[in-house]
Design a protein around this nucleic acid. Structure first.
Lengths: 245, 245
DNA sequence: GTTGAAAGTGACGTAACGTAATCTTGTATA
DNA sequence: TATACAAGATTACGTTACGTCACTTTCAAC
C-alpha cells in the first residue's frame, strides 16, 4: 500500500487524475487511511499503466473501463474497431493537410484567398473524380499520364511544385510592368528552362496542356488550378516575346 | 433578409448552431423581427460558409473569429501554424496506427496481450533508435539491409507480413502436438517455401537472422518482436525434422 | 503540541453544440 | 378575424478528462 504521492512520483500522473479515476469508478484506490487519504497497491499501479497505454491508442475512458473490467472482452474486435476509427481520422487529417498546402500555394500565387470560392472548388473537385478522369482521358492520351503527374499540383509542396508556384507568383507581382520588361523576361527564361528540364522535348504534350490551360472550362473540367484570364494573356504575350529572341 | 429557416435549408446548419454563433458573437444576425426572430442577409450567409470551410481545416471558432474579423490577419502565418499543428496530429495518428497493427499481430501470434509489457517494448523501441541501428550494423552487413526489410514487421499488415504472422500463430496453436505431427510439418513446409520465395538462396543471411532470433538479448537489441524460448526450441526441432526428410 | 506540506472536498471552466422543457411568435386556414 | 399549429426564443443541463481555485482537514516531522 503506497500513498498517492508515491503513485504520482512513479507514474507522473497528477493527483487530480487519480481522484477523477476514483470518481468515475475506473480505478478506485485499494484502501483509505483513517483520515480518508487514498492508498494504492501493486494491482492498481499496473492497471494505471494499462490505462495510460490504452489512452495513447486513442481509446476514451469509458471504453478502457469496459476493456479492463470485462473479463471476456473481445480484443481482436476492439482493436480492429479502433483501427477503423483511426484510419478515418487519418483520412481527415490527410485531406486537411492537402487543402492547407493548396491554400498556402494559392495565397502565394494570388496574394489573397477567396474562401467561399476555394471551398466551391474543393467540393467540385471531390464530387467529380470520375468525370475529371474522363475529361483527362479525352484531352490527353494514356501515354501522357506520367507527364501529367509532373505538372505542378497545388496540393503538394515538394520543391519542384514550390518553384513553379514561386515563378507564377513573381509573374503576377510584376504584371503591372510590360511583358518585355527585363524582370518578366528573366522569369520567363527560368520557366522555359524548367519546362525543358521537366518535360524534355514533348512539345505535343505541352501544346495540349496550354490549350486546356487557356480555356477556363476545360481547365475546370480536368481540375487545373484556376488562373485568371488576364494573367494567362500576359503570360502568352511575354512568352512570345521571349521566343522571338 | 431571410429567416433562420431559410438559412438552415440552404446551408444545412442547425438552428442551435446559428444561435450559438450569435451567442458568442461570431455571427450576429443582420436584424430581428418585432417578435425577436433572427434575420440574416447575404453577407451573413457568406460568412457562414467561410466559417464552415475554416472549420473543416481544423480551426476552432475563436481562431476563425480572429481570422474573419481582423482585417490585417496574416493568412500566410496562420495557415502555416495550422499546417504545423496538423502535421503533429498526423504524426500521432500514424504512431497509433502502427501500434494498433502491432498489437493485432501480436494478438494473432500470442493469443493474448500483456499491455504493460507491450508498452515497455514500445517505450524501449522509441528511445533506442540510434542504439538499435548500431546493433543491426554490428550483426548484419550493409548489403543485408534490403533483406532485413523483407523480414516480417509487426507494425505493418501487408499480405506478406500477415502470412508470416498467420503461420507462426498456427505453429503456436499446435505446439501441444509433437514436432513431427503432420499439421506441424505442413506449416513448416509452407514456412520453408515462403523463405525460399522471399530470400532465395541467401543462406548466410538467414543463418545470421536465426542466430539473433535465438538469443533473447540480441533480438531485443535489434528490435525483433520477442518470441518465447520454448516456441523457438519447438520450431528448431520441427525444422530439423523437416530437413531430414 | 505545533506547524507546514500534502491531501481532502466542492465547484467552476473548457468546446461546440445536442437535447429537452417551457413559453412566445408567425402564418395559413376556416 | 379567430384559431391552430409550426417554428422560434430562452433557459439550462449534458458531454470529455481533467486544470485550477478556494477552503478545510490530515499527516509526519520536530
Amino acid at each position: 500500500m503506497i500513498s498517492i504521492k508515491e503513485v504520482t512520483k512513479q507514474t507522473g500522473i497528477s493527483v487530480r487524475t487519480l481522484r477523477y479515476y476514483d470518481e468515475i469508478n475506473l480505478l478506485p484506490p485499494a484502501g483509505k487511511t483513517e483520515g480518508g487519504h487514498r492508498l494504492y497497491g501493486e494491482k492498481e499501479l499496473k492497471k494505471l499503466q494499462e490505462i495510460q497505454f490504452l489512452k495513447t491508442l486513442g481509446f476514451n475512458l469509458k471504453e478502457i473501463d469496459d476493456m479492463l473490467s470485462n473479463e471476456n472482452w473481445d480484443w481482436a474486435q476492439g482493436l480492429e474497431n479502433q483501427l477503423n476509427y483511426i484510419m478515418k481520422e487519418k483520412e481527415k487529417i490527410l485531406e486537411i493537410e492537402s487543402t492547407l498546402k493548396g491554400l498556402m500555394n494559392g495565397l502565394t500565387i494570388d496574394g489573397k484567398i477567396d474562401l467561399v470560392y476555394v471551398n466551391k472548388l474543393i467540393q467540385l473537385y471531390k464530387q467529380d473524380t470520375e468525370k475529371r478522369k474522363l475529361y483527362k482521358e479525352q484531352y490527353f492520351h494514356s501515354h501522357d499520364s506520367e507527364l501529367l503527374d509532373l505538372l505542378p499540383n497545388m496540393n503538394r509542396n515538394d520543391p519542384d511544385t514550390l518553384e513553379w508556384i514561386a515563378l507564377i507568383g513573381q509573374l503576377k507581382q510584376h504584371m503591372n510592368k510590360g511583358s518585355d520588361a527585363p524582370e518578366i523576361q528573366r522569369i520567363i527564361r527560368r520557366i522555359h528552362e524548367k519546362t525543358i528540364e521537366t518535360f524534355g522535348d514533348n512539345e505535343g504534350f505541352l501544346d495540349k496542356v496550354w490549350e486546356v490551360r487557356k480555356s477556363p472550362e476545360k481547365s475546370r473540367e480536368v481540375g487545373f488550378y484556376p488562373i485568371e484570364q488576364d494573367m494567362l494573356d500576359f503570360f502568352e504575350k511575354a512568352w512570345d516575346i521571349f521566343m522571338e529572341n
